[in-house]
């Protein structure tokens, strides 16, 4: 069970030393950016549940038919279904895995975990957070006080209970998580990758610091001047970022704070279809929405203007009063 999951500190430093951390333009196409994710990589996914999911990147990675990705995210929604159902990933590290509380259990997750041998590696929500934070801090572990005594801990030999050397108390050490690449969707960033995030930031700051490579998708690219006017709003600095892709509605059908709420009609129809038949229903969904469209805009057209507008109206309403 205990895989070589900890990257040696020397390699983490070497990887970082080799990255071009200068203030330079990194804008590229979705295809090019998804090409930075290679078979077998550890992929950290930003956002949480139905919020700021880097869906366009996941969409393109699935279209490029990557294999054996080991993915991690604090809480997984339909993105987890799609990663398992398309065959790009056989291992997902997370704390909660279903389509959303509104829909009950994911039949797609159940099918792949119960009968196809795919792994849903469960940590507590804070456990995922402390693993990414340790990764971002450049230390091999962090101590925490949850998970102790539970079967969640007993299923995770990678986590080590210890007696604190200062107090003698029981603590749990959780290992650092340093993804090979992080996928993060934001409201806006500049061409250098200075990213400003509105609303909930989830674990994205730790994720960006922990990963060996960071790909940002953004609702819009703004000027560096605009970033410099409000540097306090910058949550991810350019020196962590390797690629920037402008993708409007890049989290659809999930939400992006202040811009659009989840596209619930699409989500309802998706859940109905894949839960009715997690193999055929998923295949048909992927054919229609993932493999079929020529580009991201065509995918959005399939979701439909009416639904995009309605989701945008709800999304923007947060600033109305």
């Amino acid at each position: 069970m205990l895989e070589a999951q900890l990257e040696p500190y020397s390699r983490l430093r070497e990887n970082l030393a080799a990255r071009d951390r200068s203030l330079r333009e990194k804008v590229m196409s979705l295809e090019e950016a998804a090409g930075l994710v290679q078979d077998g990589m550890k992929v950290g996914i930003g956002g949480s549940t139905m919020s700021r999911t880097p869906m366009a990147l996941i969409w393109e990675i699935i279209r490029q038919r990557r294999q054996n990705l080991s993915c991690s995210r604090c809480i997984v929604s339909t993105d987890g279904d799609l990663l398992f159902g398309s065959g790009v990933s056989d291992h997902i590290i997370t704390s909660w895995f279903a389509q959303g509380i509104l829909w009950g259990l994911s039949k797609v997750m159940r099918h792949h975990v119960e009968t196809q041998g795919k792994r849903y590696e469960e940590w507590s929500h804070m456990g995922v957070g402390m693993r990414l934070r340790a990764g971002g801090m450049g230390v091999p572990f962090l101590p925490m006080r949850a998970m102790l005594g539970s079967d969640v801990m007993r299923q995770r030999p990678e986590a080590k209970p210890i007696d604190c050397p200062f107090t003698g108390e029981r603590l749990l050490l959780v290992p650092a998580l340093n993804p090979d690449v992080a996928l993060i969707h934001v409201q806006r960033c500049d061409a250098y990758g200075n990213a400003q995030i509105d609303g909930l930031q989830f674990m994205d700051i730790d994720l960006a610091l922990a990963a060996n490579k960071v790909i940002l998708t953004t609702e819009r690219i703004v000027s560096n001047d605009q970033i410099r006017r409000h540097p306090d709003q910058t949550k991810i600095a350019f020196l962590c970022v390797d690629a920037v892709v402008e993708v409007p509605y890049g989290a659809a059908p999930h939400e992006c704070f202040g811009i659009y709420e989840p596209m619930l009609k699409h989500m309802d129809a998706y859940v109905k279809q894949v839960n009715a038949d997690p193999v055929k229903g998923m295949q048909e969904y992927l054919e229609k929405y993932f493999y079929g469209p020529k580009n991201w805009n065509e995918y959005l057209e399939l979701i439909g203007l009416e639904e995009l507008l309605e989701a945008s109206q709800r999304g923007r309403s947060i600033y109305n009063d």
């Binding site: 704390s95 895995f97 159940r110 804070m126 005594g149």
Partner: peptide, 20 residues
């Protein structure tokens, strides 16, 4: 858990909250 009849969604923050 080794061969589950049903894999449920998991803890989310539930374990953290109930532990603390």
């Amino acid at each position: 858990p080794a061969a589950p009849k049903t894999r449920l969604p998991g803890t989310g923050g539930g374990n953290d909250i109930s532990s603390l």
